[in-house]
Amino acid sequence: MNDDPMNALGLLPLAGRLAWWGTSWLRGHVGPDDLLDAVLAGDVTHVVLGPEEPSGLLSALADLRTRGATAFGASFPAEGDLVGLGGPREFNDAALDVGEAVVVLGCETGLVPARVGPTVEWTRLEARRRQVPDVGEADRDLRSALIASAQLLADLDVARWRPEIADRLMNLRHRPSLVAAPGVPTRCVDLAARALQALEIADLALEDDGSALSVHEIDQRRGALTPLARAGRRALVAACSPEGWPPE
């Protein structure tokens, strides 16, 4: 269990933190100080770059609220899977480069983060309306992918080449302890934690292909993990997309 609230907040990617806490702020559940503490999560500062002069995060979010923002939704795309994105191409490409972005619902705006030392710079771009995975379907797909990947990795003797992954697969109940913003459905908090768990397993297992005995084994390993990573990304998008949240 993570006793440091800043570390717990930092477990969720940047786009997820802004989606959860920014939406909670827009809906009046938290104040500006709580919003900034949660989104920064230990960073020195966040700035927003756009057509005008750079501005602080809170000022930029207040401007978006004035322009009609109703919620913030996250995207976690990968090559060949632009989940949570609706275009245009400039926004999609920028999001794909860093693997995450925020779509501002209600005003056709997107924010793409980039780390510059201890600072995060959010670039403001046009972003169109998108489709997001259904929470229930994403949940079922993730559970199925975890079971299938665990079996395939066991067949590939994962305990031999990455014993820490075997340990994680044996203890799937030990999930990241996320700090959720008020108003985020409990089901989505749990889904986000399991999505992060799945993505960590996939990343660890793909980290070192050098331990594989053959090209065939490398292909088998990737074949076992690609569906898991895809399901993890889609589940995380569903969990961090307020337009698709189920009622509590």
Rank of each mutant, 00 (worst) to 15 (best):
A101N: 03
G223H: 01
S149V: 05
A238K: 06
A8K: 12
G42W: 05
T66W: 12
P113S: 02
S214W: 02
T109S: 14
L12F: 12
A145C: 05
P182R: 05
L236E: 00
A19H: 01
T70E: 15
R67C: 11
V215G: 06
L26D: 02
V47H: 08
L153Q: 01
W161V: 15
L191Y: 05
V189L: 06
W25M: 08
R140D: 12
P5T: 10
A69S: 08
A148E: 03
P247Q: 13
P13E: 07
L111I: 06
A114P: 05
D33L: 12
L213I: 11
L146N: 07
G99I: 01
E53Q: 12
L225R: 07
T119E: 15
C107V: 14
D33P: 08
L146V: 02
A235P: 04
P185H: 12
L213H: 13
D43A: 09
V103T: 04
A235E: 00
E52D: 15
P54F: 10
R233E: 10
L213D: 14
A127E: 00
A205H: 09
D93Y: 03
S149H: 07
V184N: 00
P182Q: 00
P54D: 08
R27N: 06
L36Q: 09
L11S: 15
P242G: 04
L191N: 00
L26M: 11
G10W: 09
C107Y: 08
A41L: 08
D203G: 13
V39M: 02
A8M: 08
S177P: 02
L11R: 13
R175C: 07
D157V: 13
D81R: 06
A148Y: 03
P227E: 00
F91Q: 02
D134G: 11
E53W: 05
L125W: 01
L178H: 03
A224G: 08
A94S: 09
W21L: 13
T23S: 04
S24F: 08
S144V: 15
V83Q: 01
R233H: 13
N171D: 15
E248C: 05
D37M: 11
A238T: 00
L18C: 09
A181L: 08
P13R: 07
T45Q: 03
D43V: 06
V83Y: 03
V135A: 09
E137N: 13
S144I: 14
P176G: 10
Q151T: 14
L12T: 06
I201D: 01
G84T: 01
R160L: 11
D3P: 14
P54K: 09
L228I: 06
E121C: 11
R130A: 15
E248G: 09
L58R: 06
S55W: 02
L156C: 02
R17N: 06
P246E: 11
S24E: 01
A159V: 07
E100N: 07
I218W: 04
L146S: 00
G99F: 00
Q151D: 13
